[in-house]
Design a protein around this nucleic acid. Sequence first.
DNA 1: CATGAATGAGCCTTCATTCAT
DNA 2: GATGAATGAAGGCTCATTCAT
Lengths: 222, 222, 222, 222
Amino acid sequence: MSLKRDHNRRWRRAPEKRPDDILDGALTEFRARGFTRARIEDIARHAGLSKGTVYLYFDSKEDMLKALVRRSVKPVADSLKNIARVMTISLSGPDDGKAADILRAMLLLAAGRLADPKTVSIPLLVIAEAGNFPDLVEFYRHEVIETAINAVAKVISCGIDSGEFRPLDAQLAARSLMGVMVLQIIWNGVFARPDDVAISPEKLILSHLGLFLDGARSQSED
Amino acid sequence: MSLKRDHNRRWRRAPEKRPDDILDGALTEFRARGFTRARIEDIARHAGLSKGTVYLYFDSKEDMLKALVRRSVKPVADSLKNIARVMTISLSGPDDGKAADILRAMLLLAAGRLADPKTVSIPLLVIAEAGNFPDLVEFYRHEVIETAINAVAKVISCGIDSGEFRPLDAQLAARSLMGVMVLQIIWNGVFARPDDVAISPEKLILSHLGLFLDGARSQSED
Amino acid sequence: MSLKRDHNRRWRRAPEKRPDDILDGALTEFRARGFTRARIEDIARHAGLSKGTVYLYFDSKEDMLKALVRRSVKPVADSLKNIARVMTISLSGPDDGKAADILRAMLLLAAGRLADPKTVSIPLLVIAEAGNFPDLVEFYRHEVIETAINAVAKVISCGIDSGEFRPLDAQLAARSLMGVMVLQIIWNGVFARPDDVAISPEKLILSHLGLFLDGARSQSED
Amino acid sequence: MSLKRDHNRRWRRAPEKRPDDILDGALTEFRARGFTRARIEDIARHAGLSKGTVYLYFDSKEDMLKALVRRSVKPVADSLKNIARVMTISLSGPDDGKAADILRAMLLLAAGRLADPKTVSIPLLVIAEAGNFPDLVEFYRHEVIETAINAVAKVISCGIDSGEFRPLDAQLAARSLMGVMVLQIIWNGVFARPDDVAISPEKLILSHLGLFLDGARSQSED
DNA sequence: CATGAATGAGCCTTCATTCAT
DNA sequence: GATGAATGAAGGCTCATTCAT
């Protein structure tokens, strides 16, 4: 048994996981060196494969990028499904603060994702390569950004309708709410250093939500 | 033959403005095709120069990127100087809403900048090339991000101290305030389409500020 | 799982015919895409086999090409044997026109072959890959070209000796006779389009032979 | 003066001749190793240039092949123009043997070209790469083959009309006439060895023409 | 100073060949 | 025997940079 160990360096991982392993490697390299400068050979090495092998799973480097973004969309969709569930539960609860609770659930869920560098890297990649892959940008905008903003805006609208919030432009308010997350993605993915006192996403988001909700509930004094 | 020399040459600018022209061209190309894929020849053409000539002004493509970012820092510093002036004026005014007014001035100033694509492109470029130029990132973090956040946080702190705002974590609150701007930069620079109904930066920021200020002034109900 | 093994496999031929099937596939691909660009996998598919399997029958792609040419030599040898038979028969016939009859038989036999694209492709392949396989060229020259030309030249010599033809350089005259066939091979294999009014090889050859024989029989007026 | 000799190996040849030098190198390599296996670097070396430089003159390897064929068409057109001149002169001469003289002039002109390996290589290249470049084949067929065959056929037709030749299918007869040349191109370009007793193109063609003319003038006995 | 021809390092992609199953 | 996943050499093309003019 142990004799077969690492024989000729073939067959290291379960073949079924190859595409995913490759995408992980691609993500790492794309983020570290940018799409253009990332070398297929390095990506392959991350997955314990040789250069040529990745072409058994992906047609081109561009294809990898697209698969990467596509793969990152699923979690967003799943998240939104979860939120819908929270929403349903919440709607059957007591009358006050429903929208607030849902928004909190949404943002905390998102905050949870911010901890995973793999998740955070994708939007950064899309941003970095925007100029070269307009269709990718369009896809991401539609499947992630608009989907998420609209979901938040809808909850805010409900809150306004039920009188929980004062009248607001829901689209703008949604952006007010989402902005911090974007800032945090950029911060963590681009500017944060290992030696930084990491800002807790939860704290940040609860603080933000506190300000937002108080503001949204108050009668504007301005 | 030699009579033809120097004809149909385009629009020879004052040599003193050359570096700036080149940087403008570089910015355009860097944003359109990414740093790696941008070609020196195209950058040169934007400035009405030939390939070789840009090397009289910059040592390398990398050098151009760094100069570009360095150049973009000045406006930020200038802005903050302006804010300091506003602050001084405001402090000599009536007692209420001073911090609020300063914050409004700061954000509107920033909102004004968001309209200029040239300004907006720089942070996107830094984000895109973060992996390849750590020192650039560090420079930008220190000279722009931290400077700006700290300025905002300081004003918020003043507002808290004067009782204008309820007790808040000024750093977190500053991020709450700045987030929308980051979101807007990303949106305009990456995802917005020409046919979009453009979101007015002023409206967005005033809406955001309204929520923030109301929230910051209220006694938290949460 | 293991139950599915060996299903939807295509049409398993008798293993004895494999090499020939493979060579047929190789010929098809070599002609369609050139030797270098032909892919083993495609060749294998033509024979209903998988990539690896062809290596059980041939050592390399180069080996396939050589086998292909070797295989094409047999029909030439067979043809010449047939001609020898015709010659024998003819020799026992009446005295006039013997050489002419033999030449006619030879050319018509060859003309028959010109209709088969598989036959015609081989010399084209040899021509195309001449630079890369000098030994192949040498082999083909010796086994096919020289053999055929010499056979024709020999018949012409007989015709001269018997007075049927005027004195001629038999080698040159043989080339005069064979040239049209080469032209026709090139034309059909390279330049002819599907929508062309196909030139009948028989007509062409009989016309050619008519000219040649009249010329060879006449006393030169030039 | 001699100090500048070979300085940094730049500027060896007259730049105006570069494209032609490159094409010569390409022709050499294409013939020696086939289009696919020919390496740009080797082609460049033939012209005393580096790899990248050839891309200043040609867009791609394919482009070189096309330019090569295009370049080879001009001599053919020029030849045919020359023949037209010969034809005009001949027509004003004595009545007998006009068509024969013109055909002799045409074939001898062509025979002269056969001595130049550069000329002979082109059709071989077209034949070798036919499968990969159908448009090139079409171009060559139209601009060279059909043009030449039609020119010959036209002269033969004149000869028939004037009673110089017996009734013949001019298209087939033209092929009878041209075939030897094709054979000779193939022979010289593919099968001939340095140690062969070279067949003189003139002898071959005069012999061929002798047979052809005698045959064409005689009243068919067959 | 300005030019742009020339250079050559760099990398994606293909595919013949191998070999564990 | 048969398979097809894996390997890695090879080469076309791009473009930052240099430098003779």
